[in-house]
Every structure is written in C-alpha cells, then in structure tokens.
Amino acid sequence: MTWLPIFTRSTEQALSGWPPPVLDPAGPFASSITTLSWILFAMAGAVLALVLAALWVALAGSQRLRSRLGGTRVVWLAGIALPVVVLTALLIYGLSLTRTLRTPPQPSDIRVRVTGEMWWWRVAYLDRAGGVAMMDANEIHIPVGRTVTVELESSDIIHSFWVPRLSGKIDMVPGRRNVLRMQADAPGVYAGQCAEYCGGAHALMGFMVVAHDPDDYARFMAARARPAPQPGGQAARGAQLFQDSGCGACHRIAGTEANGLAGPDLSHVGSRRTLGAGILPNNRGTMIGWIGDPQSLKPGNRMPAYSTLPGQDLTAIAAYLETRR
C-alpha cells in the first residue's frame, strides 16, 4: 500500500511542517483567527516572561528586590489589575470577532450541505432555492473569492467539520442544522477532518475542499452537469458487475439504476482525489484494493469486503468507476 502526499504544499513546508495550517490561513475567516492567535501568543509570552522573572526574583533575587515583591501590593497589581486590563481588552476583541465570524448567511453565498456519516461526508450542492443540484462525497469544490455557507447536519452521531486553513470548526449534531461560513482566496486543495470523536474510524474521517478559479469552477460544474458517457469495453463489463454484485443497494450513480443512499455517492467518483474519506489517493490500484478489502484499509467502516470477486472483475469495476467523472 502506498501513501502519497495528496495535498498541495511545497516541499519545504512538508519537511518543516511550518507554518502549521491554523497559522497559514487561505481565506478571510481563518486569517482573522490567525491574527487573533498571534496576539494571544504574544500576550501569553509576555505574561509567562513576567511570571518567570518574578519567580526568579523570589527564589534567587537580591534582598531588596525580594522585599519589594513580597507583599500584597504585588498581588493587587500583577494578580488583579494587570489581568483585568488585559482580559477586558481580549474579551472585547474576541466578542467582536465572534460577531463577524457568526454573521448569518448572505443571499450571495454559495450553498453546500454536508452531512456527517460514520465515517465519511455526504455532500450536496444546493441551488438558490435550497434544492439539491448535485450529490457527491468527501470532496467539496468551491470557487475562489466567494463565501460559501456550509449547512452541517448529521445522520447518525455527532461529527465536527473542520478545514483549518479556511475557518474554524462547527459540530454536526443529529436533529439540528448548524451553519459554517468559509472562503478561500487562492486556488488549492485544503485538508479537512472530523474533529469530534465519533467512535470507530474517527481517525480516518478526512475530506478536502478544492478551491478553483472562477472560470475553472464554472467549467468544472458544467462538466459534471453533463451526463456521463456510456462505458465501453472493460468498463462496460464493470458496470454490469457493479449492478450484479449489488453495489447499487448502497451507492448511487446518477443516470443508472444504482440509487442506494447508505454509502457515498459514486456519480463522480472517478474525479475524486481520494478514496475512503481522504485516506488513499484515488487510482486503479487503490480502488481495486478498497473494493476487495476495505476493512484492512479502514477498520470498522460499513463497506463489506468483495474479496470473493476475482481480480479481473475487481479491475473491471474499478475501470468502470474511473469513467464516472
């Protein structure tokens, strides 16, 4: 099994890990939090330095310094007055920023509904009226420079939607609909992950947000809106096998009889970058491996193993799925 770097960060970054995604924002929502973070780090550094200096004086300072430190005046000044001033300022900043971040969705926003599932993401692109325009899974495509309202739901237990470079996280709670707004200012692939423990394979519940230039985005969505070509050759045999093996009971492929909703929508699986909710690069080999033995790749997931199918059948199904772009 090969694990390849999937995400587009330069080599030096991959080696050093710096800057970490939370401090390397790619949009206005995340970058306002990054600014706050740096202010907080500076505050913490200054206070820690003050405490360490005071401790040093208390333990090893000269008699004169120590006697100035050893009274209730210090407690009033450093323990009460200073925190009150600093915390008041931070509170005002934090509350105003919260208000900005929690601005209600605007009519101009692009709407996407993401539903948390054990352990993958159901994605529905919504039109203005809120109708489902396109279904997908584990990958969200957005245009650069536009604010996206993500409606967060859950069909089973609590999950949490987090793309550190684009915004903070909001939970997906059964019975509720939460809203998160995000925006990317540069094209790229942004890693996301479930942040709320959801049992079993919580660790392997990733996804990605792909930001396109506006033109590119328009082309991409238009291509997806066109019906997929009829599969030929090996892929045609794969389509038949897909149907005969009962895959359609759980998976939907637009324009075919496969209309199951229990598993990820496969209408556009061929164009996805990853398999298994962000854990494997998507290619013929990994697809064959996944269908044949998903449990060894992602223990506990709901997909049964099709290990009884001969290798050539698995290859044919993988070839068919590749055509669904």
Binding site: I92, L95, S96, T98
Partner: peptide, 14 residues
C-alpha cells in the same frame, strides 16, 4: 460586579 459587567459585554458586542 466585574464579572457581571463583563457578562453584559456580549449584549453590546456579539
């Protein structure tokens, strides 16, 4: 009183 005052901030700010 300080805590009460702080608690009123959200009504103005958030």
């Amino acid at each position: 009183s300080l805590a009460i005052l702080w608690q009123a901030f959200p009504a103005l700010l958030s």
